[in-house]
Write a protein that binds this DNA or RNA. Structure first.
Lengths: 121, 121
DNA sequence: GAGTTAATTAACTAATTAGTTAAATAAACG
DNA sequence: CGTTTATTTAACTAATTAGTTAATTAACTC
């Protein structure tokens, strides 16, 4: 995985892993307890944890024979930062050209002209 | 892909696809122009676009022989909503048990324990 | 030391992903 | 019509992923 944002997104792309994070939001816990809600073998959970750890989303301690997992939210902050850049696109501000065009399109159903929208970079 | 959040996260887990979205944030454009910055064949880009479209992150029109792509931000709003739940974990509020313990651990037991020097933003 | 509990590693398989090149489709152009 | 331009589909390959069962490591308990 090249960059750390990709690793984080990839880790979050699995519902089991997101459920694990949701559980850890309630507090640190063991692998066995994390595994319990899932119809899945322990090694499968272990692998999911490894993916989460690799992405920096959890850390693992050691306490006797348990390896308690803890949520680490720093990568989530990066995700929030990344996605926030796009906020304006879902908050429907009508001051951008794009939205202007979108509005035009909504009101004038059949634009005949081939508007040369291609720009040079 | 089961749920739509997973599909969105998976789509965002690739740097090429994120770059495509970044380009589309500047405005609607053609597949060829989207492909240009990448050392990658057109079919490869076409597949990336299909992934993005499947996740609802872009929509495609038709204008003569071009299929202009447009950013669709609704799924990003869902991502923002999901990640926002975890905001308290990176904003270091010290009113939770977890953070209390974390603080104890940082100050008390072992002098050469790693300092846990996370910064506020 | 033997057994129990917690978790990981090894070895394997099936499915998915990300890329390739070559062929096909679709619309515009002369 | 045949050609050009834009894009997709087909067919293939290599790498990665998500899961399995069996074996292993590690620490505690008797």
């Amino acid at each position: 995985m090249p960059d750390h944002l990709s690793a984080t997104f990839a880790a979050l792309a699995d519902p089991t892993r997101r459920a694990i994070l949701a559980r850890l939001a309630l507090g640190e816990t063991s692998v066995t307890e994390l595994a319990e809600p899932f119809e899945m073998s322990m090694p499968a959970i272990s692998k999911h944890l490894k993916v989460l750890e690799h992405a920096g989303l959890i850390s693992r301690g050691r306490e006797a024979q348990w390896r308690p997992c803890r949520l680490e939210a720093a990568p989530l902050k990066d995700i929030a930062g990344w996605v926030d850049y796009y906020r304006r696109f879902w908050e429907e501000s009508f001051d951008r050209l794009d939205d202007y065009l979108r509005k035009l399109q909504a009101t004038a159903p059949k634009p005949q002209e081939k508007k040369n929208a291609r720009k040079h970079r």
